[in-house]
Design a protein around this nucleic acid. Structure first.
Length: 275
DNA sequence: CGGACAACCTGGCGGC
DNA sequence: TGCCGCCAGGTTGTCC
């Protein structure tokens, strides 16, 4: 599903067609997709504002307008793309919100599952204030990660999925990072040695960077803004590979449920120490 | 604090 | 072939 690498790929793909465009209008096909403010105010406020930049915070796409930030969260099945005037696209069947751009072009937000939301705010922190640090930022150092993990006793899998602990990691990259770091998803955070903390830090970043370099994992719904698939799914070592051999040791990959999430791991490479 | 679980949603797919 | 029912999971909110 869209996690940090997928959202980053969407942001990169939308910069060229979107920056410099002016938002002229907004069509709300599905009111519940508009988080805040209410659709009428939302449409009135964006009208005439030029897109100045695009960035990403956790799994949010952040569109910088002249006086506001327009945020989009893709959740499970959201897709965001710029459509040429009058052109039809495969994801159009699930369009929830459209924004009119220059020369008849449109920014379309499609979302089959209807979990995704759009937000408009003058103060970014109103939406993203509770999020933890960006794992790929330069100031996210090993020391900082070690300091944050020190206070936690929770199992690693739910900790990595907690957006207040670390921003942008979802189910796929959590499983991949834990496998690369050779850590069982149920290991209590407080049980890690300094070397294991360092391995986890390194492998979270490596898994995310690999995902970005392969333009995201198109496990099912995710597509780049141009409609094509990423290739990161071909490099996954555990996610979705339950019942198949571990690429490191050959043992069968297992799948369990942890905090209601499908969790994939190799019981040999990622042992759970008895205690 | 944290874990369990429901809710939000619907396309896709396994099973029969 | 067709239908049923479950599964997928990011996030919020509720309850214990």
């Amino acid at each position: 599903m869209p996690e940090l690498p997928e959202v980053e790929t969407v942001v990169r793909g939308l910069r060229e067609p979107l920056v410099g465009q002016t938002l002229h209008s907004m069509w709300v096909e599905r009111a519940s997709t508009v988080h805040s403010p209410a659709p009428e105010q939302f449409a009135a406020r964006i009208r005439g504002q030029r897109v100045q930049a695009l960035s990403r915070r956790a799994k949010y796409i952040v569109i910088h307008l002249e006086h506001d930030f327009l945020l989009v969260h893709l959740k499970m099945t959201g897709r965001l793309y710029v459509a040429a005037a009058g052109a039809a696209y495969p994801a159009d069947a699930w369009v929830r919100v459209r924004f009119g751009l220059d020369a008849g072009h449109e920014l379309r937000f499609s979302d089959a599952r209807r979990f995704g939301r759009v937000y408009l705010t003058a103060h970014l922190a109103d939406i993203t204030g509770g999020l933890g640090p960006e794992p790929l930022d330069d100031d996210f150092t090993l020391e900082r990660f070690a300091g944050r993990i020190a206070g936690h006793r929770r199992p690693l899998k739910p900790l990595l999925l907690d957006q207040a602990f670390i921003a942008g990691v979802g189910n796929i990259y959590a499983d991949e990072a834990l496998h690369r770091a050779r850590l069982h998803p149920l290991r209590p955070a407080s049980s890690l040695t300094a070397a294991e903390v360092a391995a986890l830090y390194t492998m979270i970043r490596a898994a995310l960077n690999d995902g970005i370099n392969h333009e995201g994992a198109s496990v099912n719904w995710y597509r780049k803004p141009d409609g094509t698939t990423g290739t990161a799914q071909d490099g996954l070592t555990v996610y979705g590979r339950d019942g198949r051999p571990c690429l490191t040791c050959g043992h069968v990959i297992e799948k369990i449920r942890v905090v209601q999430r499908g969790t994939h791991f190799c019981p040999v490479c990622q042992p759970l120490p008895e205690r």
